[in-house]
Amino acid sequence: MRIVAEHLSYTYNEKSPFETAALHDVTLTIEEGEFFGIIGHTGSGKSTFVQHLNGLIRLPASLKHAKKHKAKKGQPLPPAPVLKVGEFDLSDKKTDFRALRRHVGMVFQYPEYQLFAETVRDDVAFGLKNFSEKKLTEEEIDSAVCAALEVVGLDFDELKEQSPFELSGGQKRRVAIAGVIVSRPEILILDEPAAGLDPLGKKEILELLHRLHREWCKTVVIVSHDMDEISENCTRAAVFSEGSVKYVLPPKELFRRTEELTALGLDVPLTAKLCAALRARGIDVDCDFTTEDFADKVLAYAASHPKKEGDA
């Protein structure tokens, strides 16, 4: 499933003193199979954008769009917004949004705070039962929950009867993720999946996301403000700022623009900072900004530019 968004705009609290434009004319395509990153400050519009993708925020109906803009005479009608996820046309009111949500899994920030059931099994099964067309047998539920727990690295037999509230922080988050992926979505969207975790927990969650990308969901989209996380993991990334998309590029090209990103008040990965500092000393290292590749390229540069004898 491909995600296509064109001319997407959204305003919070329209016509009140607190009116704020959350999205302004956003055009963005995410291909099937990507590990896509979305970068931006709090309030840059990135969360509003991803909530559009499974219909939690609806597009204004096309009719309303035309009416709203007819009022301003003499101005050409702005292009109508388009939002398609695979076969689903999200600008169409008749779209089956529940079917859409089955295909587009969404993991919110701190997903462990959405746990509610008495047992881990029941909590993970919640989405499964909601999305299923027919009534599932206990065996079917068990096997699906077991598979979902296994892929997030938890043991079904050990945890199924436990209360989700008695688990450790990291385990809770895994259970919450299992509760989203249990219905086998094709696209998985995660808002700050590693927020609040300690370094080890962070590392484990990112490994989990790669495992899910390989074995479970075709497309993974992460919203993050950790630039190192983006540069180490993503195929491409979109930069949101003040409601607009500024760049959509692979990390290798995106983080060459150290100055532009800094001007937007954004950070760059450590490797990009090092590359900039080296460039200032006349050393050009052309890497893809992963730690691994940076070290390799620096070593290759050192091999091809060996220090001459007698150099100070």
């Binding site: 900072k273 090092l274 080296l278 000393r281 050393i283 530019h305 150099d311």
Partner: peptide
């Protein structure tokens, strides 16, 4: 420190 590391690397190459 980023600057110090860049300096160190620069000192190792020609």
């Amino acid at each position: 420190d980023v600057e110090t590391l860049a300096k160190e690397i620069a000192a190792c190459v020609s």
